[in-house]
Design a binder for these strands. Sequence first.
DNA 1: AAAGTTCACAACCGCATCAAA
DNA 2: GTTTGATGCGGTTGTGAACTT
Length: 344
Amino acid sequence: MDMKRRVNNENDDDSNNDEEMNLRRGPWTVDEDLALINYIANHGEGRWNSLAHSAGLKRTGKSCRLRWLNYLRPDVRRGNITLEEQLLILELHARWGNRWSKIAQYLPGRTDNEIKNYWRTRVQKHAKQLKCDVNSKQFKDTMRFLWMPRLVERIQAAAAAAATTTAPAAPGSPTLSATTSVTTVNNNNTTIPYNNYDNLNNNNFEVHSGNIHMNMSNNFGYATPENSSTGTSSDSFVTQDYYNNNNVHHVGNNNNNNNPNSDYYHQQGNNNNQVSFMDCITSPSSMSLFPHQEMDFQAMELPNTPWINNNHTTFSNFWNDENMLLLQGLGGGDNVRIDWEKGI
DNA sequence: AAAGTTCACAACCGCATCAAA
DNA sequence: GTTTGATGCGGTTGTGAACTT
């Protein structure tokens, strides 16, 4: 294909330009970031190749675009993925698969790259631990019938706790509707209240400005730009509060990742209901499934909690063994049958 | 304390698509 | 209709940090 070759030639050109112009690759420096930020602040985005040149950056346009979109953009939301976000990711991935950019549209401030990394590092890891393919029905059932219900439970619990212990949320802040009805999975009597996940056109999951209303009793879906009959759009999910809480401030060269120049921007606020990655996705069901594991939800919501930082492998361990047993126990249920031996 | 391993994520690569010339 | 440049997307890699042995 000429175009492919041409586009590939873009890389070839880049390679040539690399030699001619000594283009840089790899981690961005502080000066490069500042140059890009300042240039975009003055001239706006777009025309990335010319932007790179005009800004005096010895980078490809692609590299500049990626750096801006995934890292430097002021509204990039960093930090732990919330329970709601995890639920959205799981559900939207079930619907669209690896359409990361599309999924990212529904998670304000999150980039496709971040969601993709989240999926690969957390979700796929557990598929691996469960010894099933991430795209297998087994694993999808695990997500549908265990992780997601438990996430909903925990979202409710967190919301309830917040309602009783804190002041009312600011208008427009994302909260879960108290009307959410969830029937949970248990070892003895398997009841899967929300079925027909695939029939997502019948949405009973509506995202409104500032609130997430879930009626899980029948179907489970989302109002989307494509199918919403209420005019709900992805933009409507971007509440003012979200942005109000996503205040950006310059924190200098704060290394919290492998990028030596990281965190010119550091997200503040909007930590409601935030729990660590490992806690939530490693085992959304872990709390109630294993009551002997007494955990402090409030403490878990605090960033840098020693419990999170020092023992983050705990959950993955008991998720594996005991949830496997639980899933096996589901085999006799009316609404779900998971045959681990035959692999469905 | 050192070496080895795993994790998390920024960055890159290849390809596809779109729009303008 | 073709060419060309720009952009976007999904997959993959590189690497520092964190953790384990």
